[in-house]
Simulated scan of single mutants.
Amino acid sequence: MNSALTAEAAAALEEGINLVLSRWTAFRMAVENEWGGRDSLQKSQKLGSHLFLLLSQSKEKVYIDDVENLLDEFMLNLNTVIEDGSIEEVAEKLMIMHEECSEGNFDSVNRLKEAKAPIVSYVKKPANDNEDDSGEDEEDDDEIAIKGDEACEMEVDEPQSRINGGSTEDGWTVVASKNNRRRRN
């Protein structure tokens, strides 16, 4: 069972959660580039609130797996798959911060406040206003994967029905592989 936090500890924990999230590169990229849609910023604010409620008001003991699952589900809602170990790292930081705050120790929050936020370079896909559809390597839909310290764009093939009048089976669209699509064109 979680011990109740003092008002000062709760405020410090909430600030610490927001600082940790604001320094998480994958999270920032997903939010700033709106990978979860136009409401990505609102979704990110909800994550901070959910984490705070989980860590400060849960009636049962909160385990690191609970925090990891919440972070993973959130990133999936932003159409982002995280494979760089950062979910586990962020969850661990949050758990340590919660434990310290519950003991009246705000050192980790103070260190975050004093540390400069890392400078992060973001890649934003340019608008396709004046492009034609003649290039085979052009991407119509993008899906972003985070692996290691870099983001990469992965090509997602167009549904066959939009390419060659493909078939739909049980609500699923059959998609031709890129090699099969080139042979047909």
Rank of each mutant, 00 (worst) to 15 (best):
E143G: 01
E138H: 13
I144V: 14
G165V: 04
M154A: 10
E114Y: 08
E114T: 02
T173A: 03
S121T: 08
C152A: 07
D141K: 07
S161G: 01
G171Q: 01
I119Y: 08
P159Q: 01
A145R: 10
E158R: 06
Q160C: 03
D129I: 08
Q160H: 00
S121Y: 07
G171E: 06
E143A: 06
A151M: 15
E155F: 06
D133K: 04
W172S: 02
A145S: 11
N130G: 11
P118R: 02
P159M: 04
N130R: 09
I119P: 05
E138G: 12
K113F: 00
G148P: 04
E131M: 10
E143W: 05
D133G: 08
E138A: 09
S134R: 11
V156T: 04
C152F: 13
R111E: 14
M154I: 15
E150D: 15
C152K: 00
V120N: 02
G166Y: 01
D170T: 02
Y122D: 09
I163N: 03
D129A: 08
K113C: 01
A117I: 03
E131T: 13
A145N: 11
E169Y: 07
D129M: 02
R162M: 10
V120M: 13
E143I: 09
T173K: 12
D149E: 03
I163Q: 15
G165H: 12
E153W: 11
E143F: 06
E155W: 09
M154L: 15
A127Y: 05
Y122S: 10
E131Q: 12
D133S: 10
G171L: 12
I146V: 12
E136C: 14
E153V: 15
E139C: 12
D140W: 05
D142I: 13
E169T: 00
D149K: 01
G135F: 11
P118Q: 00
G165N: 05
G148V: 04
T173M: 05
D132G: 11
W172D: 11
V120I: 15
D149I: 05
I119K: 07
P159S: 03
D137R: 05
N128W: 01
V109L: 05
P126D: 01
E155T: 11
E143T: 03
E158Y: 03
D133P: 04
D129L: 14
A151Q: 15
K125Q: 05
N164R: 02
K124P: 00
E143L: 12
N110D: 13
E139D: 12
A145T: 07
E131D: 09
S167V: 13
G135T: 12
R162Y: 09
V120Y: 11
D140C: 07
S167M: 06
D142L: 15
V156S: 10
G135Q: 13
E114S: 02
E153L: 14
S161N: 02
D157C: 00
G135W: 14
G171M: 06
P118F: 01
S167T: 10
E114D: 13
S161V: 06
I163A: 06
V109P: 07
W172C: 01
S167I: 07
D149M: 06
E150A: 15
V123G: 05
D142P: 08
G148Q: 04
T168P: 08
D137F: 14
V156G: 00
S121G: 08
M154F: 10
E139V: 14
G165T: 06
R111S: 08
